[in-house]
Write a protein that binds this DNA or RNA. Structure first.
Lengths: 120, 120
DNA sequence: AGCGTGTATGATTGAGTAGTTATATACTGA
DNA sequence: TCAGTATATAACTACTCAATCATACACGCT
């Protein structure tokens, strides 16, 4: 019998957390977004992102090893593309939630100016 | 006119990445999962998670400041609860994707043992 | 072969942060 | 008031990791 009643073991939590951490970098999100329109070469991603070649390449490896990207070599060029576009659902969920929070925060700030009978 | 054609400015990417990073820690995911069944006190979370009181409290502050949790004080106790259960959709998406990848990896390993004309 | 281009990678540095320990704060009850 | 309990926080350590620089690797060309 398990010592506690958690329905997830530590290992699963680590895996999910690691996946979230892969998405937790602005440059990686930008690369994913750029690849949303289709396959691109490293050079094209470097130019479009404005980041250094070494840095772009390194982040592409991280996304590749995470199983989010696919790599195809053609002559000198390496083309990357998104394997499963469902990641964008993740980003959309986060974006939607963030903008909701912003709206709520703005509303809260508004209320601060009318501290009337705030029944909180 | 924007200098480039990216549809996201750097700031939005930072915000989304920061939100993903909040979810990128196993203990925070565990706390969120525990809170999935409803409001809990810090002490209860400490016991259920097995982590130290200081650590649990710190991670709760992170989730609180991120706008994922709500806090209610009752006497000595502090109760936390999830504001928007839609975060679990995020976790579900990630879990689903991860298990798909595992299945694919297993299948790939299987193919290694029959390098012949493996027709999947 | 050597040269040039595109991409990957090792070494290093610096920033961020998870965990611990100890302490501070807030509340309850005697 | 003081003692005790629940929670938050400060100081510290150790680790992770993003960015840069330099270099290695892979491929096409002449």
């Amino acid at each position: 019998m398990a010592k506690n009643s958690k329905s997830f073991d530590t290992n699963s939590l680590d895996l999910v957390a690691a996946r979230f951490r892969v998405l937790g970098d602005p440059l990686r999100l930008q690369l994913l977004h750029l690849l949303g329109d289709g396959e691109m070469s490293v050079g094209a991603l470097v130019e479009a992102s404005g980041a250094s070649q070494a840095n772009v390449s390194k982040h592409l490896q991280i996304l590749l090893r995470a199983g989010l990207l696919q790599r195809r070599k053609e002559g000198l060029l390496a083309f990357y593309k998104i394997i499963d576009p469902s990641i964008f659902q993740l980003c959309d969920l986060v974006c939607g939630r963030l903008s909701e929070q912003f709206k709520a925060d703005l509303s809260a700030i508004g209320k601060l100016r009318h501290p009337g009978q705030a029944a909180e």
